[in-house]
Write a protein that binds this DNA or RNA. Structure first.
Lengths: 189, 189
DNA sequence: GATTCAAACTAACAATCGTTAGTTTTGTTT
DNA sequence: AAACAAAACTAACGATTGTTAGTTTGAATC
């Protein structure tokens, strides 16, 4: 066991609560009770409730951004790129399913600076995704269905994987990736 | 123009705000400001904030339940049933996109009775969906991919349609249905 | 045993929350 | 013009919110 900093423990506990009830519905007293301490004690480790939220969301968003950049800069076909994106989402979801609830449902409660930063990352991510699909259609690797719907449909599934995965009992990472690729891609290629 | 009751106007305004920021983050003063009145005046028309939430969610959930019951009791093949489910989601989304944010993200803030009622409807809906896919696989109409993933994947896309649809400019209902059917089903059948 | 320091505590603050009570305004019907 | 109902208002309530200040605890180091 690596010794986890007290701050990280708080962030982990907050990730669970935020995903269960949403950022606004979780009070600092709720979070403190989950940690077994008093609310004021939290402030020995964190600066504010907002800091917790932005740490959870920005860290995850940067993870996706880094992963996406590696994929678009790699020298493989469009289909392989899509498979790598699916793999990326599965990896992130298995490693930090709790935090993805905040990323998906509470990003709008970020404050000015981080909100702008997040929205840019999300926009770029979708744009990169769209371009991969576009190029795949142009090269005849992907069926010429409605591009926006293909992008939205795939992304919707990948983004909400965190809601579904915890209910599956001990599903293997590689099997999950393989099956996701079948269901999401075998239709459109 | 049919004259809309003041109560319904409040519920519509609340649907928009709840979808933008979430139930807990929207105050009665926010809602009142959106209506151009004072917070206390809202209570001439509604009983509580909770009543607004439960009206939005339960009405929509019952709409889905009714639609699903018609579909499972109809005498058509599995593929046609799936197409009808897609059509149902498109219809509900186009009619009341604003309310679907609450259904998807704020159902956990329903109080005891309505929470249990909602969770039962959602469970039954998923079970009906799963059984349609199962039977389709048994009859060889649907490819034998992982059933849970097929159900989760399709449902994820349909449930988050409300997030994506408002960004598309004036897309025709029938074209949307046709394209959704292509992307969601052509892969698995 | 004294010192140190992280991490807990108690107590309280100003602001905001959903909601209630009682009153006034507005527009329509007698 | 009087009467009525719908829908707005002002003022305030008790509870809860995120956060701060100052203090105590407990275990490790000297």
């Amino acid at each position: 066991m690596k010794p986890e900093s007290r701050k990280q423990e708080i962030i982990n506990a907050a990730s669970i609560l935020f995903t269960e009830k949403g950022y606004s519905a979780v009070t600092m007293r709720d979070l403190a009770k989950a940690m077994g301490i008093k609310a004021a004690s939290l402030y020995n480790h964190i600066q504010s409730k907002q800091e917790i939220l932005s740490t959870i969301i920005i860290d995850l968003a940067e993870e996706f951004t880094t992963g996406m950049n590696q994929i678009i800069n790699s020298d493989v076909g469009s289909i392989q790129k899509l498979e790598n994106i699916i793999s990326l989402h599965v990896d992130v979801t298995l490693r930090n399913a709790d935090g993805l609830g905040s990323l998906n449902s509470d990003w709008m409660h970020l404050e000015e600076e981080n909100l702008i930063y997040f929205e840019k990352m999300r926009h770029d991510y979708e744009e990169n995704f769209r371009n991969i699909v576009k190029k795949g259609v142009e090269k005849g690797e992907i069926k010429p269905y409605n591009i926006e719907i293909m992008v939205f449909s795939t992304l919707s599934t990948l983004r909400t994987l965190y809601l579904w995965y915890p209910n599956q009992k001990n599903i293997d990472s590689d099997i999950l990736k393989r099956d996701m690729i079948s269901v999401l891609l075998k239709g459109v290629v």
